[in-house]
């Protein structure tokens, strides 16, 4: 070959061809979203109205009732006075620094995202644990979900559903769901074979095995997954604010673009406070329900 430029430069496709590919895909997707966007959006209407209702509930209820309810939940779950007092103080500070409303918005979206992740993630994890084929299909998908930059999958979501709460929830769930799926799968697979055999030998049906043995024994692992999911959802709050999710993320975003250091720091600290509350509550609740595992090792 006379032209040997392929030795020094990668033999890439021409710009024109690349442009055609991009144009075709983009316009195909745009057509798709124009055609079906409204239908798909309407599918999410119940979720949206729940989100709005829950957010309004948190914001419109007087602050001291919310404060009392949160502290009561924390105390019920952890039975720790220290933590409960810590929660009261940090929520008071959040309110004092004028971040109450944003914090409630974030709290509501995180709660909804976590619930959705659990409702979707645990069944998927169970499915993976029962079939090696399902596991080999889902695992790479989870890898992609965890490594693909969030902005990339925000694009099609925004194209399809526009800016707002629902795309935000979808983005957060995609980002935050992998740990709960992975750890549900792992937890069930780690259940001692002999204990499962014992259940089978006494005539337990597959359903009885799942709910009576596998899920309860996998619970510590699943709870660790849920905990991770909550943490990842909180980390996603700032990115989600770029597509119009209101809450603590928006002031942070504003601070980045305008170099407001204190505003950014305060809102960042509020996110951290929420994270710590969620983390401690979910962990110590898990620990309290697994008390039977204490004591010396069995078997």
């Amino acid at each position: 070959m006379a032209d040997a430029s392929w030795l020094t430069e990668f033999p890439d496709m021409s710009r024109r061809e690349l442009l055609t590919i991009r144009k075709t895909l983009d316009s195909a997707y745009r057509d798709f979203s124009r055609e079906y966007g409204d239908t798909i959006e309407s599918l999410f209407d119940p979720l949206l109205s729940f989100l709005v209702w829950f957010e309004n509930l948190l914001i419109q209820t007087p602050w001291w009732i919310i404060l009392f309810v949160i502290t009561a939940i924390v105390h019920f779950a952890t039975r720790s006075w220290k933590l409960s007092i810590g929660v009261v103080i940090s929520l008071m500070l959040i309110g004092y620094f004028g971040m109450w409303e944003d914090t409630m918005r974030t709290l509501s979206i995180i709660t909804v995202c976590t619930l959705m992740s659990i409702v979707l993630g645990i069944p998927i994890g169970i499915l993976m644990s029962r079939s090696d084929r399902a596991q080999s299909i889902v695992t790479p998908l989870l890898d992609v979900m965890q490594t693909m930059p969030a902005f990339v999958y925000l694009i099609p979501v925004v194209m399809l559903l526009g800016i707002g709460k629902i795309p935000g929830v979808i983005a957060v769930v995609i980002y935050a769901i992998p740990p709960v799926i992975r750890l549900t799968n792992l937890g069930i697979r780690l259940v001692s074979k002999e204990i499962l055999e014992a259940a089978t030998a006494y005539g337990a049906t597959p359903t009885q095995r799942l709910f009576g043995v596998q899920l309860p024994l996998a619970m510590p692992t699943i709870m660790a997954g849920i905990n991770q999911t909550i943490m990842m959802a909180l980390a996603m709050v700032v990115i989600a604010s770029m597509i119009g999710v209101k809450g603590l993320g928006q002031p942070v975003l504003k601070s980045i673009t305008n170099q407001y250091f204190t505003l950014g720091l305060l809102n960042g600290l509020a996110i951290v406070a929420l994270a710590i509350i969620f983390d401690r509550v979910s962990q110590s609740y898990a620990k309290r329900t697994q008390r039977h595992l204490e004591g010396h090792d069995h078997g």
Partner: peptide, 21 residues
């Protein structure tokens, strides 16, 4: 088979196979 296991046979395991919860 499930009925058979429930009524006809029971089993004791080397590492006990008790349900820890």
């Amino acid at each position: 088979l499930t009925e058979f296991r429930r009524h006809k046979m029971s089993m004791v395991f080397q590492h006990f196979g008790l349900l820890p919860h």
